[in-house]
Design a protein around this nucleic acid. Structure first.
Lengths: 251, 251
DNA sequence: GCTCCTTGTGCGGTATATGAACAAATCTCA
DNA sequence: TGAGATTTGTTCATATACCGCACAAGGAGC
């Protein structure tokens, strides 16, 4: 069924790149074929192409991506206005409150960090632009899901593997939906150690000049020094000030 | 001429993604075709495919990449051991000396940041994992070029657009080659405002367990607070300590 | 209204995907 | 250790989908 304007070969190649995930730096042809759901012959040609273009290395047995592959993602970060516009504000905010600050957008069920100013590390995972977290248990995720409206948010939650990262993680759709309503009303979201023990965070939406919510802004802090109850008191105003300052320059 | 194992279509698709560069967040079909050197019909099919897969947005006139495209590059950062292994050391180093520290690798004529711990911002450009700088005028670039050996380094310099970013930038191949010899002998490189006025940096190579240089590690500091002459005295030992600590765990 | 530039669309020739069959390596278990 | 079993990599023929050209249609600018 030739869709006319859909290039199956290209799509398969992209799947091959995505086959290289978290814990799989080096993959054999069959591994890739399995991970991407492709025929081994097809996977092989994609990999050899990547290798010839310098996007992958091949030692005769395993393929591994090269740093050149970063060009693809970096095309977005350097081309899109959002990361560039918010970075200076993020730096200032982070220095002001002495905690890490980040901006992220929604991609399906995950939030994607597009800019970040990190203070001392409090999380076990290392976040950077391009990093992803499940939306349902991240403060920015809650804000962005709330912005979608009831129905769309529920659709996304239904697609999500709701797994408890800590004993505090909320994993029931009804509970999460109620939480989203609260977030929508109060205009911010607070996460108390739902993603990682010892970590609290608070997020507000970033709206563009026309009032559309296009991203979220947050501050994360160690629960030991800033209990969840104090997050709003300490950080809500600075966050809202930055959001207000950014509004006119965002599109 | 069917190369047997090379997928032209896939290669073209990747070129289309790379067409979205620095100052071109939104591109029309013809723009992409021109930038990537493709037929308009081909560019159009690639773009529509990207759009159908969710990697790009199409408003009927312009295409723009979506955050989903970051999955491609992030596959590398999260899959490759190097960034993960060095990040903790980088954080410690950065906190210790109170300056930004980074690790990068070489990709053709450019260095690519694979990990970074940033202190207050001193550069006008915002560096993050995936960012690129020309190798010839960056301290880590000098280290990595020196590691290549005379001949390969010269080849790369010949491919490079040697442009003076500041009055201090060295742009003559003979001068640069001599500089590389010095770097090779002394085991580190210092850049004094060659990339940006007011910025000095010092870099050392990172070797793996078998003695091969696989990356470079640097510290950048404002020239105002740390003149170039003091860079080595202050930062060389900490850098070398980190490099030595990393050696056994790098492969 | 005219031109120039851009976009959308069919069509033929050609390169590419497919799946099975073969070869080579790796594993398993005596 | 060695032979069979299993997985893996590669090759090949054919049906198919893709490439690029040329033409038609839609806007933009003057």
């Amino acid at each position: 069924m030739p869709d006319g304007d859909f290039l199956g070969g290209f799509a398969k190649g992209l799947k091959v790149i995505e086959a290289f995930g978290e814990n799989t730096p080096k993959l054999a042809i069959s591994d890739v074929a399995k991970a991407a759901g492709l025929d081994r012959a097809t996977a092989r040609r994609c990999l050899l192409t990547l290798s010839q273009l310098g996007y992958a290395d091949y030692d005769g047995k395993f393929f591994a991506l090269t740093p050149k592959i970063l060009r693809l993602g970096h095309a977005y970060l350097s081309a899109t206005p959002l990361p560039q516009l918010v970075q200076p504000c993020l730096d200032k905010l982070s220095a002001e409150v002495g905690q890490s600050a980040s901006v992220s957008v929604l991609d399906a069920t995950e939030i994607v960090y597009v800019a970040r100013a990190s203070q001392r590390r409090v999380m076990s995972i290392n976040l950077m632009p391009g990093s992803r977290l499940p939306a349902y248990c991240a403060s920015m995720g809650r804000v962005l899901l709330a912005a979608l409206g009831e129905e769309d948010a529920r659709t996304i939650l239904n697609q999500t593997m709701l797994k408890p990262f800590t004993p505090h993680t909320k994993t029931e759709i009804s509970v999460l939906m109620k939480e989203l309503t609260v977030v929508r009303l109060q205009g911010f979201a607070i996460i108390d150690q739902e993603l990682e023990l010892g970590l609290c965070s608070i997020a507000v939406p970033l709206t563009n000049g026309r009032g559309k919510i296009i991203a979220a802004l947050n501050i994360g802090a160690p629960a030991a020094s800033v209990p969840a109850g104090e997050m709003a008191g300490r950080y809500l105003k600075p966050l809202q000030a930055v959001a207000a300052a950014l509004r006119p320059i965002l599109y």
